[in-house]
Computed example of a mutant assay.
Amino acid sequence: MPCAFGGPAGTGRIRAAPADFIVVEELGFALKGEGEHLFLRLRETGCNTAWVAGQLARWAGRPRHDVGYAGLKDRHAVTEQWFSVLCPGGRHPDPDTLAIEGVELIEWQPHDRKLKRGALRGNTFRLRITGLEADPAALEQRLQAVAARGVPNAFGPQRFGREQGNLRLAERWFAGELRPRRDERGFALSAARSLIFNAVLAERIADGSWETAAPGDPVQLDGSGSWFIAEAGDEALPGRLAALDVHPTGPLWGQGEPPGHGPGAALEQAVAARFPLFAEGLAAQGLEQERRPLRLRVADLEWRVAGDVLELSFGLPAGAFATAVLRELTEVD
């Protein structure tokens, strides 16, 4: 994936300690304070999300599928995230008895529905890059550019699994070599979609169009899933794009053709044709064509350099990856 601003402005190290990578979830709705689902906000250090969910199921004496969470979090971090546990009749265990190694209970509250995947407003990140080697002026200029223009909204490497295991699973599934377990299928489908999206985004970065839109291209409202087709003669569109009010989009591949009739649609068809096994496999599974912004607003970006340490704080919407921001700033180990 090419960088949008000419390559990293320095080098450094991330995750030297879990506290160097802090993620705080922001729920996309208010809890009702009553209902059969116990919501727990946990602070986890060095814990895998799926493992914590299993521990909660054991604590509550419930099947694993009765535990919900909105998104997977990296184990090599300190994370604050929400879980829900179904407790029939509202009879839940005493939260004071919850004891999981590396996990601290911050708050809890009942609710009437299970926590579903993606049910987030976004995440706030507080990161420390240590061992920083960068020209101060160049780094400052890059940070200013990212704050003003955003970054390419690439899927991070974790979407593809360890050693791209999710992508290889999709490849074998679509080739008819195996049938994944039900709990593996979503990961495989997401990896295949992400591959095509990232390939389109790479082309748009290379030709400089990752933050622009031509007539006929679908554009999406910032912070919303709503999108519309850019029209010729829309004099307000360039200003809205520059203000990050709307963003150009790329495909989350599925059956049928991408919407729109601009140059972006032709590019997307050409890129998907490079991955026929994945494009046809996604369509065969009945997924519809969907859209994802090619550009990512980096909200409330703040930074501080102290010696060889760069401290960052910023917010991203649900489904965005902090690695998309880091790769435009420094090359990190």
Rank of each mutant, 00 (worst) to 15 (best):
S190C: 05
T130E: 08
G6M: 10
R292I: 15
Q269T: 08
G262Q: 11
P8S: 06
F275H: 13
V85N: 00
G216Y: 08
P110Y: 05
R240K: 08
E177Y: 05
A322E: 06
D300T: 14
R291N: 05
Q255K: 13
P152M: 10
P110A: 05
A19T: 13
E25L: 07
L167S: 10
W51H: 15
D245R: 15
R15A: 03
A242R: 12
A119F: 02
E44R: 15
R185M: 11
P136N: 12
L267S: 05
V24W: 06
R240E: 10
A213K: 04
H247K: 14
P215Y: 10
D222Q: 15
R179V: 15
G307P: 04
A4V: 04
F21A: 02
R204M: 04
R128C: 14
A191F: 14
K32H: 10
G176S: 10
A154T: 08
A145N: 03
L38W: 14
G46I: 08
D66L: 01
T11E: 07
L167V: 09
E184C: 11
Q158N: 10
V103T: 14
A279N: 01
F187I: 07
G131M: 02
A4L: 12
G35T: 00
L86S: 00
A148I: 11
L105C: 08
R75V: 12
K114G: 00
C47D: 04
S194C: 03
R13L: 04
L167F: 03
L267Q: 10
W227A: 12
V151Y: 00
G10T: 01
R162C: 15
P259T: 05
D333E: 13
G319D: 09
V146S: 00
L169G: 06
D207H: 03
G156M: 07
W59V: 08
E104I: 15
E328S: 05
Q220M: 15
G10P: 01
A134N: 01
K73G: 04
E302Y: 11
L312K: 06
S190N: 03
E288C: 03
E203Q: 15
S190A: 09
E101W: 03
W108P: 13
V67T: 04
F278V: 01
L296H: 03
Q220G: 12
E280N: 13
A322K: 01
D96R: 15
G12C: 02
V23E: 06
M1Q: 08
W173F: 11
L72G: 04
A57C: 13
E235K: 14
A273H: 13
D245H: 15
S313D: 10
E25R: 03
L127R: 02
V67H: 03
W210I: 03
A30F: 06
Q158F: 02
P317W: 03
T130C: 13
Q144S: 13
V24L: 04
H37P: 05
N153V: 14
D96M: 12
R149Y: 07
R193G: 10
G118W: 08
A213H: 09
P88D: 10
V23F: 12
A206M: 04
V298P: 00
A138T: 15
T212K: 12
T212P: 01
E257N: 10
G71N: 05
R291I: 12
A9E: 02
G10V: 01
L267N: 09
L56W: 04
A242M: 09
R172E: 12
A230M: 11
E231A: 11
